[in-house]
Simulated scan of single mutants.
Amino acid sequence: MTVNTTTWQPAPPSSNNGSWTRFNSLVEAELRDFVDKNRAQAGRISRSFPLMWDHIGSALIGGKRLRPRMVHLAYTAFDGGDPGRCATMAAAFELLHTALVVHDDAIDRDFVRRGQPTIGAHYRDHASDQGLSTPDAEHLGHSASIIAGDLLLAGALRLASRAAAGLPQADELTATVHDAVFASAAGELEDVLFSASTDRPDLQDVLEMESMKTAGYSFEAPLKAGALLAGAGLDQADALAAIGRRIGVAYQIVDDVLGTFGEPGTTGKSAESDLREGKRTVLTAFAAEADGFDDLLAAFRRGEVEADEVRSALKDCGADARAQDLARSLLDEGLRESRRLPLHSAARAELEAVCMHVLTRGN
Rank of each mutant, 00 (worst) to 15 (best):
T2K: 13
Q9V: 07
P12D: 12
G18N: 14
R32P: 03
F34I: 01
K37S: 14
A40K: 11
A40T: 04
F49N: 08
L51N: 11
L51I: 08
W53D: 00
I56D: 00
A59W: 00
L60D: 00
I61N: 09
K64A: 01
M70L: 12
M70R: 05
L73I: 00
G80A: 06
P83F: 07
E94H: 10
L96C: 10
V102L: 00
D104P: 06
Q116N: 06
I119H: 02
G120E: 04
H126L: 15
S143G: 09
A144S: 12
L152S: 03
A165C: 13
D171E: 15
E172F: 08
L173K: 09
V181S: 11
A185D: 10
G187L: 10
F194L: 05
A196F: 13
D205L: 05
L207T: 04
E210G: 10
K213W: 07
T214S: 14
K224W: 10
G226A: 01
A227Y: 02
G231E: 03
L234E: 14
D238Q: 13
A241W: 03
D255C: 02
T267G: 05
G268V: 01
E272T: 11
G278Q: 11
A287W: 09
A290S: 15
F293D: 07
G303M: 03
V305W: 03
R311T: 07
K315N: 15
R322V: 02
G334K: 06
S338E: 03
L341F: 07
P342R: 06
H344I: 02
S345F: 10
A346N: 11
E350H: 11
L351D: 11
E352H: 12
V358N: 01
V358M: 02
